[in-house]
Nucleic acid binder design. Sequence first.
DNA 1: ATGTCAGGACTCGTATACGATTCCTATAAT
DNA 2: ATTATAGGAATCGTATACGAGTCCTGACAT
Lengths: 224, 224
Amino acid sequence: MTTQSLIKPEPEAGSSTADAILNYIRGAIADGSLNDGEPIRQDEVARRFNVSKIPVREALKRLEAEGFVAFIPNRGVVVRAVSDPEIAQIFETRAILESNAIGFSVPMMTAESLARASACCAAFDEAGDVAQWSALNWQFHSSLYLDAQRPYLVELIRTINVRLERYLRIQLTLSVGKGIANEEHHAILDACRAGDAGLASRLTYDHIMGANKSLHRFLPGARF
Amino acid sequence: MTTQSLIKPEPEAGSSTADAILNYIRGAIADGSLNDGEPIRQDEVARRFNVSKIPVREALKRLEAEGFVAFIPNRGVVVRAVSDPEIAQIFETRAILESNAIGFSVPMMTAESLARASACCAAFDEAGDVAQWSALNWQFHSSLYLDAQRPYLVELIRTINVRLERYLRIQLTLSVGKGIANEEHHAILDACRAGDAGLASRLTYDHIMGANKSLHRFLPGARF
DNA sequence: ATGTCAGGACTCGTATACGATTCCTATAAT
DNA sequence: ATTATAGGAATCGTATACGAGTCCTGACAT
């Protein structure tokens, strides 16, 4: 864990101590402060937060279940490397799930839903830094799935997106990344307005798989 | 936690203490020993396994991430109730993911793959108790997805199936449950043999959604 | 008799402590 | 000079201990 990544060990929003640490480490992995394979020293994190190791370990156990880290017996915890093929599969899974979700959603959409989604889309367009893009990108996508009235499905999609956040940020940072994303968002929104569930579904699938392709054209070169 | 459910607190397969407890509690929830909403007393579990609370809490933290239990602040851990609509959504998500997985898989299947799947299918047909049915049912399904060469997707499907295991067991216990499942398994297998990915995909979707429907015709009456 | 409040028992959440295992380093032998 | 080995430092995994908060019970007032 680099020093840079832990400038601000404030309690944040989490209610319990373990929750705060959980969010913090997850954030550090998402924004690239913690690199793949890097060990996470329990005592070090504990000292930084002025707590014992116990809440740290509990946070790490949750992160293990979420796939972000791995406990190596008697060796400690490391950030779990996500291989390029695995990233591709996760994007593909997103495409499958999100295209279905929007397909369910479109027939149920109301004027308010469309207005909310449109607002998210506009905010995404004007956002400044990559952290905002990432957050607003999710807000836009998820707002399109809400009318499907399938909270379990949306929550699963959210979990998968969290796991990908780090790579989404890289993709959005690419020169063409954000511009294309925004165009495609508008196209999806138009399909929703037109009530064309099949088209919205297909555009969503292609939108996600397109991000996947553009990321992989870049990845072999450099990792952040 | 009932006494019945904890007859055999052996270390099982898990390497670390926490892993053993994790598998044990997860199993107790899967087989219905632990009912929805039932509190899990940390000290009680710790005493039963002759360990302290710490590994128990770590196991529970993983189960929390997997959705099996919820930590209520200063109140303890309870088995998380899965509502009927949520069960329906989980089945639907399975149908989406597994129909896609088999669609990817069929074009890549070899004679050996088909033989393995066929063997699972036969074993399922002849299995005796519900725990075996459940295990062999998963072996059959997963064997059909392996050739898709998408380990992430298969692992996600497995996770979702584990979450549903308890309700799958109920469904298979229903008078018609196992027989219909077996017929449908054979039909899916035939489609794979014929190399008809679209048909296999559709049959898989219907197979899972059919189990969903038959379970829900039953559920409002009695929970195990 | 019923509602309210105080006191105790219980459970949780976390700090501290300690043995076990692993990793690093310095020394010695070939 | 290079390799093997022994000893120490560091880290992990878990037991024990304790304060904080919650729930239950029983006495008291109305």
